[in-house]
């Protein structure tokens, strides 16, 4: 009895040791970033690390705000994220309704087409997409990013999966009561799918906010830069401005961090619902 007790004790200690070490190592780079963002360039690499700077150099933030044209980039990114997310949610829920609740002959074939293209990675279609956008005269515009990101099959797939779980009897009853299809969609399906819609929105917001490759391909005009492009540009133009680069990094992470604090559950749900597709 005593032996198992001490063995349990050792297990508990090991358990906490592993979990805490991992948690700690996940946290440290972010703390270091935050701390460095308030330091002068000399202090950033001083050793031993001074986690709380003696003087908080807020001017790193105000400098980035000015030199990197930060407010403009911030607005650009907010605008793109908002438009893409709204379009994605709107068109995905509409299409998912047709796939899930209306019987029509080509349904399965069309849905299979959506599914099949889901496994084609962005990097494979990016070249033809680029020439299509260029032929439309849209390269170096925000419209390019909106068009290529607002209609992805992923959203349709996630919402359809959720709609499939809503009983058909409910829809039939509403049809008998004389509600038209759009009424069923907007007054029954959407209110019942709030959590799926929030999850999809969160996934889309995070993906758009953090996206780097597509803006890198399409946007060359600095006035049209997104935050991620701007951060990368700052790093290559002001290589030695360590404090300011860290301040810019903090600012690029904060909006998603706030969103994460509020909607943590939906971040996880969105990821898991994306994960069950196998």
């Amino acid at each position: 009895m005593k032996k198992t007790k001490s063995r349990n004790m050792i297990f508990a200690i090991l358990k906490y040791a592993v979990v805490l070490t991992l948690t700690f190592s996940m946290l440290v780079p972010f703390v270091w970033m935050l701390s460095a963002s308030f330091k002068t360039n000399l202090e950033v690499f001083a050793f031993p690390i001074q986690w709380i700077p003696e003087v908080f150099h807020f001017e790193n933030y105000s400098n980035v705000w000015e030199i990197a044209n930060y407010p403009r980039m911030f607005l650009n990114t907010v605008k793109l994220t908002a438009i893409i997310t709204v379009l994605q949610v709107l068109t995905s829920t509409l299409a998912a309704y047709a796939f899930s609740k209306i019987k029509f002959p080509e349904r399965d074939v069309l849905f299979l087409l959506y599914l099949a293209t889901m496994m084609v990675p962005y990097q494979v279609v990016m070249i033809p997409q680029f020439s299509i956008i260029r032929n439309m005269g849209l390269s170096n515009t925000h419209m390019a990013l909106i068009l290529i990101q607002a209609f992805t099959p992923m959203g349709v797939f996630l919402i359809k999966q959720f709609f499939d779980g809503i009983p058909n009897e409910l829809i039939e009853a509403a049809r008998i009561d004389g509600l038209n299809e759009f009424g069923i969609y907007s007054r029954i399906m959407l209110p019942l799918s709030k959590s799926a819609i929030v999850s999809l929105s969160i996934l889309t917001i995070t993906a758009t906010w953090n996206d780097f490759l597509a803006p890198l391909i399409y946007i060359s005009d600095k006035d049209l830069f997104t935050i991620q492009l701007g951060l990368r540009n700052l790093c290559s133009e002001y290589t030695a401005e360590y404090g300011q680069i860290m301040a810019a990094s903090v600012m690029s992470v904060i909006p998603i961090f706030v969103l994460y604090c509020i909607f943590q559950r939906f971040f996880e749900e969105g990821m898991i619902s994306g994960a069950v597709k196998g």
């Binding site: 299409a95 209306i102 087409l113 293209t117 997409q129 068009l147 209609f151 969609y185």
Partner: peptide, 16 residues
């Protein structure tokens, strides 16, 4: 219902 998503899907995913 399909159309708004489908047009975007065809032009920017399927054709590419």
């Amino acid at each position: 219902f399909l159309l708004p998503n489908f047009i975007g899907f065809v032009v920017f995913t399927l054709i590419p």
